[in-house]
């Protein structure tokens, strides 16, 4: 119970005051109703749950990053962290080791690897280095890696020259694949390697090597092989002797010649050309004096038999 004369401080007449608590209206206001309906809209709720925090965080980050000093701070921090990792001793490379290269190639590679040691392994571009080294003609394969000890290891497999190829511009060294590995000034520089010549000779270098191996018994007399018409081989011996080999199966033909030589000393005789191009009819050509002698012998021989 309360006093009947109770008045609200500064309030209106008691009748209006007593009417005030009766005004309680259970109905939601229009805006409240709209708000409730909005909050029950699924898309809006999803947006509120995920979109709003996202926008808030993103907005705050954007505001903070709008200041250039803050941006610089962020980049500095990132750089410092990266630097700290890169400069750790585990990642330092302090030495260069080149394996399997001749002195000339060794020097060339050393000149190519233009790095000041010690350096962080993150700053070495091994792929580019490998590609650059592979550019050398003398290099067949190369493996570039950083060894755990902190050494940059460049393992080179050099191309091995197997023959000398006489070309328009001079003497070239070529390897098994027909790739040029270098040039020499005179034949005497690499007297140990066989000589080949002619257009298209290097494409069939393996066949040439096989022929040289077949000609082993007369090796000291062999001057070289000449590719004729990019089709077949001529084997050139000293004393201007030539063995004309067929385009298919030249090895067998050469073996026949060698066998003939071993049996009858063919190549020591006074002949210029052994023509094996037609396997059914091997032909030899004698030198001029030999023909004359042959002719004389035949005439005298005939006469003698008549006599």
């Amino acid at each position: 119970m309360f006093a009947l004369n109770r008045r609200r401080p500064g309030g209106p007449a008691p009748a209006a005051a007593s009417g005030a608590p009766m005004r309680r209206d259970p109905a939601p206001s229009r805006w409240d109703y709209r708000y409730q309906r909005l909050m029950l809209t699924p898309l809006f709720r999803i947006g509120l749950r995920y979109g709003l925090p996202l926008v808030l965080i993103g907005g705050m980050a954007a505001l903070w990053l709008a200041n250039p000093a803050n941006r610089a701070l962020v980049t500095d921090r990132i750089d410092a962290a990266r630097e700290m990792i890169h400069s750790r001793p585990e990642f330092t490379v302090s030495a260069l080791e080149i394996i399997g290269a001749q002195p000339a190639l060794h020097q060339a590679i050393e000149a190519l690897v233009d790095v000041e040691f010690p350096v962080s392994s993150f700053q070495l571009d091994l792929d580019a280095l490998r590609a650059a080294i592979s550019e050398f003609t003398a290099v067949a394969a190369v493996a570039v890696r950083v060894r755990p000890g902190g050494t940059l290891e460049i393992a080179v497999t050099e191309r091995v020259p197997v023959a000398v190829w006489r070309y328009i511009d001079g003497l070239r060294l070529i390897d098994n694949d027909g790739v040029m590995t270098g040039m020499i000034l005179s034949r005497a520089d690499r007297a140990d390697l066989p000589l080949i010549a002619g257009d298209g000779a290097k494409e069939v270098i393996l066949e040439a090597l096989l022929l040289f191996r077949t000609a082993e018994p007369v090796f000291d007399r062999v001057r070289g092989l000449v590719r004729m018409g990019e089709r077949r081989w001529d084997m050139v011996l000293d004393r201007d002797q030539r063995i004309l080999l067929p385009s298919d199966d030249p090895v067998a033909a050469l073996e026949r010649v060698i066998a003939l030589h071993e049996a009858q000393d063919l190549l020591s005789r006074d002949i210029t050309i052994v023509d094996m191009r037609d396997s059914a009819r091997p032909t030899i050509r004698l030198t001029e004096p030999a023909i004359n002698i042959m002719r004389n012998v035949r005439e005298t021989g005939i006469r003698a038999t008549r006599d």
């Binding site: 209206d25 109905a27 939601p28 229009r30 109703y33 409730q36 309906r37 029950l40 699924p42």
Partner: peptide, 18 residues
């Protein structure tokens, strides 16, 4: 309109759907 709004609002609240 107020009364309809009241009824609908509380029914929606109970159903948790618009």
């Amino acid at each position: 309109e107020c009364a309809i709004r009241t009824a609908l609002n509380s029914a929606q609240k109970m159903a948790q759907v618009r």
